[in-house]
Amino acid sequence: MSSRKPIRKAVFPVAGLGTRFLPATKAIPKELLPIVDRPLIQYAVDEAREAGIEQMIFVTGRGKTAIVEHFDIAYELETTMAERGKSLDVLESTRFTPGDMITVRQQVPLGLGHAIWCARAIVGDEPFAIMLPDELMVGSPGCMAQMVAAYHEVGGNLISVLEVPREEVSSYGVITPGAENGALTEVLGLVEKPPVEEAPSNKIVSGRYILQPEVMRTLEGQGKGAGGEIQLTDAMARMIGQQPFHAVTFAGRRYDCGSKTGFVEATLALALEREDMGREIRAIAERLLAGG
């Protein structure tokens, strides 16, 4: 057994305005938009639970209270369903044990690094996970479970990465790779959106992190970076060389649900895999593609 502190807490930055999806997100948080019949945030929370994470920390902003409501007990709904003889199993994954869901407010939109820093008092002196719900990671085991397993091997800080065609690297954060051992790659540096010809690799950072609590102190004294925001990438880059830092190449699929095309792709892909609708969805897709 590993003597390392277990990863018990996960931070979900959910304060963004979701402007790409307006007008749908005018009154509904983008994290509650459904992929088939589950909100985006639910996929991330289920992934965290599978990895053994116990406490979910939502960094919210104004207008995001519906996320908290989603994970609360809905007495009227549950009572009505029970009276009608309907199973409540479908709601099981939306419930938390009291105390296992915590929210903090990011009052000012100062970037991802600032959002993570807002959770510093709850994280305390423990290593913790960060999960960006816009990145829908589909795999078995899930992405965070793969990362937790890697963490027990090497400790320190970890980020999930995916390999993309080299011509796409300038849209992402990219790692400078060191020694490789299976799915693990030593991280020697991080570059945000490099020109294709200058990219140190084709391994992009993909929205899942396990970080040591020292990152909070790094963020504390950090000035604004790209876009006038406090960047998490900058803080992580400063920790390279001070603590072990590895990338885990995710064995699975990633859908960028922060974009409309990625959102539709994820909805179609997951619907096609469903036993209760896959065959019907495939027939509909084929008919639409044929112009019928």
Results as ranks from 00 to 15, higher is better:
89 D>F: 11
232 L>M: 09
160 S>H: 00
147 M>V: 08
153 E>M: 09
243 Q>M: 15
271 A>H: 05
156 G>A: 14
11 V>F: 03
275 E>Y: 07
220 E>G: 04
44 A>Y: 00
99 G>W: 04
81 M>A: 15
133 P>N: 09
178 G>Q: 05
20 R>K: 09
79 T>M: 12
140 S>K: 05
16 G>T: 01
212 Q>T: 14
80 T>V: 10
213 P>D: 09
106 Q>S: 11
119 A>W: 00
23 P>N: 07
250 F>H: 11
130 I>R: 01
121 A>M: 13
70 H>G: 01
91 L>H: 05
111 G>D: 04
283 A>Q: 12
172 Y>N: 10
120 R>H: 13
74 A>L: 07
202 N>G: 11
81 M>T: 03
5 K>P: 12
140 S>Y: 02
267 T>N: 11
187 V>M: 08
4 R>V: 15
138 V>K: 11
228 G>S: 04
78 E>K: 02
151 Y>D: 08
180 E>K: 15
268 L>T: 11
242 Q>C: 12
110 L>G: 10
159 I>P: 06
132 L>Q: 05
289 L>E: 09
96 F>H: 03
62 R>N: 12
289 L>D: 06
160 S>F: 00
266 A>C: 15
3 S>K: 13
57 I>Y: 01
241 G>N: 08
241 G>Y: 01
59 V>G: 01
60 T>K: 09
111 G>V: 00
152 H>K: 14
104 V>M: 05
192 E>S: 10
6 P>R: 07
268 L>R: 14
146 Q>L: 09
139 G>R: 07
213 P>Y: 11
174 V>F: 11
260 K>M: 14
105 R>G: 05
248 V>A: 08
169 V>E: 05
133 P>V: 02
90 V>W: 01
202 N>P: 05
92 E>M: 11
246 H>P: 08
186 E>T: 12
270 L>Q: 05
169 V>S: 01
164 V>F: 04
18 G>N: 06
56 M>D: 01
79 T>H: 13
68 V>P: 05
232 L>D: 04
214 E>P: 09
157 N>V: 04
205 V>R: 04
107 Q>P: 13
108 V>R: 13
218 T>L: 12
258 G>A: 09
4 R>D: 15
254 R>P: 01
131 M>K: 07
94 T>W: 07
6 P>G: 11
289 L>W: 05
173 G>K: 02
16 G>F: 01
63 G>P: 06
200 P>T: 00
204 I>K: 06
153 E>R: 10
22 L>E: 13
259 S>A: 10
263 F>D: 08
206 S>I: 02
75 Y>N: 13
226 A>K: 14
240 I>D: 15
76 E>C: 12
64 K>P: 03
193 K>P: 06
116 I>W: 03
61 G>P: 00
262 G>T: 07
275 E>A: 14
131 M>V: 04
243 Q>H: 15
98 P>T: 03
55 Q>A: 07
117 W>S: 13
64 K>L: 01
286 E>L: 12
63 G>C: 08
123 V>R: 07
149 A>R: 14
246 H>K: 11
84 R>K: 15
139 G>P: 06
195 P>M: 14
288 L>N: 13
245 F>L: 10
57 I>S: 00
166 R>M: 12
276 D>V: 02
154 V>R: 12
193 K>H: 12
19 T>S: 08
33 L>N: 03
98 P>M: 12
169 V>D: 01
109 P>Q: 03
137 M>G: 13
161 V>L: 07
52 G>V: 00
94 T>F: 07
230 I>D: 05
47 E>L: 05
